[in-house]
Design a protein around this nucleic acid. Structure first.
Length: 287
DNA sequence: ACGTTTTCCTGAGCGC
DNA sequence: TGCGCTCAGGAAAACG
């Protein structure tokens, strides 16, 4: 399940293998993969063909590459199971291959593979004059915690003003981007906060600790290539990351808390799961 | 307006 | 062997 560290690993792969190359041909093999490109698959392909890809950028879980001389960018989101793979042209098609980009140099092609089809690619106009050509379509996505321009103080103020709970806030991409279910649980464990804690009651030191926890766990994951539970998350060369073995909370139901030994609990939460230590992360008294 | 719920999707795993 | 059920969950749309 790609969250910020996994998407950053992919971004670095794109920067190395794809940036600077000119697109010769685009094949859309499943229309759902470009469903957010409202003008349709034919327009999508036409806007890419003949264009040279610029440097790879990322905000939260979104990735994009500027298209030379167009004022537009190729924007991608991996969703739950999306992969961007750099493959030799002769490599057999993957089962869930959705989009193929061939390049004018005849070298390795870029493939978007996505089993559950929650992810997708689009071509979107960018803010004129923006050196990074950030697509306007993601203007509502907040800066992520690894972005030097992320505003910690504004984040605290926003939390205090919301009538919601801390885990919902962590997953709200308009407040802080890049955090998904895995890193939310990991950061809350590190900060000793219960997922059901109302954000309006968070003190400034608690927000500071929470942000520090998010940054630490993401940096640690990035250092080992991200979190892979199965073959659904891999880098552009098809390799898994190793952070799953270092997880403290997520997926560790009934296993001992690495701080206090209390069995980790799994609560059903929002049609998904929350993993936490019932001793280190006490449930808030009133809701 | 804002917070909450639903919806989209496929394959693995499991009980019977 | 196979059927039906549950689970995994990002983010936008729909809902209240």
């Amino acid at each position: 399940m790609p969250e910020l560290p996994e998407v950053e690993v992919v971004r670095r792969g794109l920067e190395r293998w794809v940036s600077g190359r000119a697109i010769a041909e685009v094949q859309v093999l499943h229309p759902r993969a470009v469903r957010r490109h409202l003008a349709g698959p034919v327009d999508f392909a036409a806007r890419l063909t003949g264009r040279t890809l610029g440097p790879a950028h990322r905000r939260g879980k979104y990735l994009w590459l500027p298209l030379d001389g167009t004022g537009c960018s190729l924007l991608g989101h991996l969703g739950m199971s999306g992969q961007l793979l750099v493959q030799p042209p002769e490599a057999p098609d993957e089962t869930h291959l959705r989009v193929r980009l061939r390049f004018t140099d005849g070298g390795r092609e870029l493939r978007f593979v996505d089993q559950r089809t929650f992810g997708g690619l689009t071509v979107h106009p960018a803010e004129p004059g923006d050196p990074e050509a950030t697509p306007l379509a993601i203007a509502h996505i907040a800066r992520d915690p690894l972005d030097p321009r992320f505003d910690d103080e504004a984040f605290h103020t926003a939390l205090r003003g919301r009538r919601t709970i801390v885990k919902r806030a962590l997953l709200d991409q308009s407040l802080i981007s890049g955090v998904g279910n895995i890193y939310a649980d990991e950061a809350l464990w590190r900060a000793r906060l219960h997922y059901d804690r109302p954000t309006a009651t968070l003190t400034r030191p608690q927000t500071v600790l929470l942000l520090q926890s998010v940054r630490e766990v993401m940096a640690a994951a990035l250092a080992v290539g991200g979190t892979s539970f199965d073959s659904l998350y891999v880098n552009v060369n098809g390799e898994s990351g190793y952070f799953s073995r270092e997880l403290d909370a997520y997926g560790r139901r009934d296993e001992p808390c690495r701080r206090c030994g209390t069995p980790i609990r799994r609560d059903p939460w929002m049609n998904r799961s929350s993993y936490f230590c019932p001793h280190c992360q006490r449930r808030p008294r009133l809701r």
